[in-house]
Amino acid sequence: MPALVAPTTRLHRAWLDAYTEWGPGRHEDGFGLDPADEVTSPAGFAAFVSRLARDGDVRYRWLVEDGTVLGGIALRHADDEYTHWAGHLGFGIRPTARGRGLATWALTRMLDEARALGLDRVLLLCDPANTASAKTIQRAGGVCEQTTTTRHGPVRRFWIDLSKPDI
């Protein structure tokens, strides 16, 4: 059974396995990885995990099953410019774990955390070509507001209304 766990140094090897499978890219949003993070050494990884724990505006969770890191999800709950640009939630599932409904599972659990924080609705963004992410967001109650272009290219903007009890 999968679990959402707070980032921990105990999962260094498993996290690196997921990262190696993925390679760099936009999925790093769910992991909270910044270009300046050095994650291969134990000390660098510990600094990375510590930075994530100190970020009071974001809750990071890793999707873990049987000691394997399957993905990551981030809930940004600050009402700031970055959240308006990047969305409240960002997630990614490693390629070998896709197609099992894990992203939807993780997203719905993070929506419960968003409700507990008092959020009435959350914004999620995805690449217009990423139909799997769009379907995940829609299964969780997301309604597409628009497709727009940012400095990083086109994005689809979805809102999930958290006041609906059936989500």
Rank of each mutant, 00 (worst) to 15 (best):
M1W: 13
P2L: 05
L4I: 10
V5D: 04
V5F: 02
A6T: 14
P7Y: 13
P7H: 11
H12K: 04
W15P: 00
D17V: 14
D17T: 13
A18E: 01
A18N: 06
A18L: 11
Y19K: 11
T20F: 13
T20C: 10
T20V: 15
W22T: 07
G23H: 12
G23L: 10
H27P: 06
E28M: 09
E28S: 10
D29A: 14
G30R: 01
F31N: 03
G32C: 00
L33D: 02
P35M: 10
P35V: 09
A36Y: 09
E38L: 15
V39S: 06
V39C: 12
V39F: 07
S41H: 10
G44W: 01
A47D: 13
V49E: 05
S50C: 12
S50L: 10
S50G: 13
S50F: 12
L52D: 00
D55G: 04
D57Y: 07
V58M: 08
R59V: 11
R59C: 08
Y60T: 05
Y60D: 03
Y60K: 02
Y60S: 06
W62K: 09
L63G: 02
E65M: 03
V69F: 08
V69C: 08
L70K: 14
G72V: 03
G72K: 03
I73E: 01
A74D: 02
L75E: 01
D79N: 13
D80V: 07
T83I: 12
H84I: 13
H84G: 10
A86M: 12
G87H: 06
H88T: 01
H88R: 07
H88W: 03
L89M: 08
L89R: 00
F91N: 00
G92R: 00
G92I: 03
I93D: 02
I93G: 02
R94N: 06
T96M: 14
T96S: 15
A97R: 12
A97F: 03
R98Y: 09
G101D: 08
G101T: 02
T104K: 01
L107N: 01
T108R: 13
D112E: 14
A116D: 15
G118S: 04
G118Q: 04
R121K: 10
V122A: 01
L123R: 13
L123S: 09
L123Q: 12
L123P: 02
L125M: 14
C126R: 02
D127W: 03
D127C: 05
D127I: 06
A129D: 15
N130V: 11
T131D: 09
A132W: 07
A132S: 14
A132T: 15
S133W: 03
S133E: 03
S133N: 04
K135Y: 11
K135T: 15
I137S: 01
A140L: 04
G141L: 05
G141R: 01
C144F: 01
E145C: 04
Q146N: 14
Q146W: 11
Q146Y: 11
T147V: 15
T148V: 12
T148R: 11
H152A: 14
G153T: 10
R157F: 06
R157Q: 14
F158Q: 02
W159V: 00
I160N: 00
I160K: 00
S163D: 14
P165R: 13
P165W: 09
I167C: 09
